[in-house]
Design a binder for these strands. Structure first.
Length: 260
DNA sequence: ATGTCGGAATTATTCCGA
């Protein structure tokens, strides 16, 4: 079973691009972030034609998450939104699919350390950690994927020296990632590739992609039983490039193949 | 060039967020 995560940066603007990727990679379950559309505006018909159903938690203009599920797999919606954090927008959705408790999140960016959004980001993380402690079971096959807006370690940043202590690179943010690992999650890419520097996001500005100025901030986290099933994990860098004339998201998809 | 995108508000231009 192939599971994946992808911040698409606007689903309506990305629809043709997403179609190409689904046809090429044929994932079974995909967490999508930054839909930038309302729940009832989700293009279910388009995805049905491609052989996917979707569980959606959207909102107008910003944020928005969904789980795509390939035909033949059942999906049961378990949760829309992170309890207590509704004012931060539509950033979490959970479904039971293919024997997995599958959650995808779009963690608040935080902007800068002196911005009011930064403590809100940390509080959102604390609520997420508490939510998993209370509502999930690390003994079950569980996936938590999405855009975490943190570089967990120096290797995950193109220039740690320049960014150390700044947004995405603080001890406080990294402690939240560690808390998720302490809960029982494994960072599937890092576990499979302990020493590989690979990025999942590059700024649209300044030719960052071609300058290799990226960050690894998109993860597939899996509980131990999921990690044991991993056969391959890839950050799909090819799909950060233009495809058939269509503009890419600023994030690459990340996928993992699990033994059935 | 703080250099690019997507979306919204407003009507091709400007802002906001990332």
């Amino acid at each position: 079973m192939r599971v994946a995560t992808w911040n698409v940066n606007g689903l309506r603007a990305r629809l043709d691009f997403v179609r190409i990727w689904l046809a090429e990679r044929k994932p079974c379950v995909v967490g999508l972030q930054e839909l930038k559309l309302e729940t009832d505006k989700f293009p279910h018909e388009t995805f049905a034609e491609l052989g996917y159903r979707a569980v959606v938690h959207g909102q107008k203009s910003w944020n928005g998450v969904a789980i795509l599920v390939r035909e033949g797999l059942e999906a049961k919606l378990l949760q829309q939104g992170l309890p207590g954090q509704e004012e931060m927008g539509a950033r979490l959705v959970t479904a039971e699919v293919g024997g997995l408790d599958f959650t995808t999140v779009y963690v608040p960016n935080g902007k800068t350390l002196d911005h009011e959004d930064y403590p809100k980001k940390l509080a959102w993380y604390d609520a997420l950690i508490e939510h998993f402690a209370e509502r999930h079971d690390a003994g079950r096959p569980t996936v938590l994927c999405g855009d975490f807006n943190v570089c967990p370690q120096p290797i995950d940043s193109w220039d740690e020296a320049r960014h150390e202590g700044h947004i995405f690179h603080t001890d406080a943010e990294r402690a939240r990632i560690q808390a998720l690992l302490d809960w029982g999650f494994v960072d599937l890419f890092r576990a499979a590739h302990p020493d590989t520097q690979a990025f999942s996001w590059w700024d649209y500005r300044g030719g960052a992609f071609h300058r290799k100025q990226g960050l690894r901030i998109d993860f597939l986290l899996g509980s131990e039983s999921v990690n044991r099933r991993v056969r391959e994990v890839s950050i799909d860098r090819e799909f950060r490039k233009k495809q058939e004339g269509f503009t890419a998201s600023d994030h690459a998809p990340v996928w993992a193949d699990l033994q059935d």
